[in-house]
Amino acid sequence: MRFHTRKWVKPEDLNANHSLFGGRLLAWIDEEAALYSIVQLENTRVVTKHMSEINFISSAKQGDIIEIGIEVVKFGSSSLTLRCEVRNMMTRETIITIDSITMVNLDKEGKPLPHGKTEVEYVRNRIKTAED
């Protein structure tokens, strides 16, 4: 799993227990899943269809730096299914796992659009060089 994004837990991210508010963390995960899918599917029209059970394992406190990891589980015809793990960057302790996040590729009318992708592509492999 690749950990692409880091977030610093600040006072405005806390709940009444002075730990990271779960809703804030889920918003960060949803945004990361969308950005990852947009890059993979090469389409800015991508939406979240489904998240499986969310497993909160530990908490984060103010000042912690967390990492959000995303990996592809499978490619559907118009969807991309991801897995997510969030961990404390310093301790490597897992904070949350989500086994399945389904993102759907859409056309201009908001209807599912087949994307034709079957494997993870890295941006560096899409860039043409003078030798290509």
Rank of each mutant, 00 (worst) to 15 (best):
M1A: 11
R2C: 01
F3V: 09
H4K: 06
H4E: 13
T5I: 11
T5K: 14
W8H: 07
V9C: 03
K10I: 00
P11T: 13
E12L: 05
L14V: 02
N15F: 00
H18N: 04
H18L: 06
S19Q: 00
L20E: 08
F21Q: 05
G23K: 11
G23P: 10
G23C: 12
R24E: 12
R24A: 08
L25D: 02
L25A: 03
A27P: 05
W28A: 15
I29H: 15
D30P: 01
E31Y: 11
E32I: 04
E32Q: 12
E32A: 14
A33C: 15
A34T: 15
A34E: 05
A34F: 07
S37T: 13
I38H: 05
I38V: 13
I38T: 08
L41A: 00
E42D: 10
N43K: 08
N43V: 11
N43L: 05
R45F: 02
M51N: 04
M51Q: 05
S52K: 03
S52M: 03
I54M: 14
I54F: 12
I54E: 05
F56W: 02
F56R: 00
I57C: 02
I57N: 09
I57D: 06
S59W: 01
K61Y: 14
K61A: 09
G63P: 07
G63K: 08
G63L: 02
I65Y: 04
G69Q: 04
G69P: 07
I70Q: 05
E71L: 04
V72Y: 07
V72G: 11
V73Q: 07
K74D: 13
K74V: 05
F75M: 03
F75G: 07
S79T: 14
S79W: 09
L80Q: 04
L82G: 01
R83T: 09
R87L: 08
M89W: 04
M89Q: 15
M89N: 14
M90N: 10
M90H: 12
M90G: 03
T91A: 06
R92N: 15
E93Y: 09
E93S: 14
E93H: 15
I95M: 04
I95C: 06
I96D: 01
T97W: 08
D99V: 06
M103R: 15
M103L: 13
V104T: 03
V104L: 10
L106S: 12
D107K: 05
E109I: 02
G110C: 02
G110N: 01
K111Q: 13
P112H: 03
P112G: 00
L113W: 12
P114A: 06
P114S: 05
P114W: 10
P114F: 04
G116M: 05
K117S: 10
K117A: 09
T118N: 10
V120C: 02
V120Q: 07
E121A: 08
Y122N: 05
V123M: 12
V123Y: 07
R124T: 15
R126C: 09
I127S: 01
K128L: 15
T129A: 11
T129Q: 14
A130K: 14
E131Y: 03
D132H: 04
